[in-house]
Amino acid sequence: MSVDAATVRRIAHLARIAVTDDEVPHLQGELNAMLAFVEQLSEVDVEGVEPMTSVTPMEMKKRADVVDDGEIADKVVANAPASDNHFFLVPKVVE
């Protein structure tokens, strides 16, 4: 399988990465090189094989259902590019 220029733009938008017109042909070539490389997986017989979902077979641990953290709003917003009164600021989303 290979991707065309329109698909490259669509993936870039899905990935929320702005691309310029100049970048598209280059990205298209690179993505197609990667897709050509992984193409060889289609020759593997995976009939009846379970996909790996856990690297080390183990039971998922559950923590106690208690509050053991919090009240650190200052720390949470300390690295934000824009914040006000413990809120993150973003461009207007709802008109």
Binding site: V44, V49, P51
Partner: peptide, 8 residues
């Protein structure tokens, strides 16, 4: 498919 190959 890749995760199945991983199992193998």
């Amino acid at each position: 498919r890749a995760q199945k190959v991983r199992t193998l």
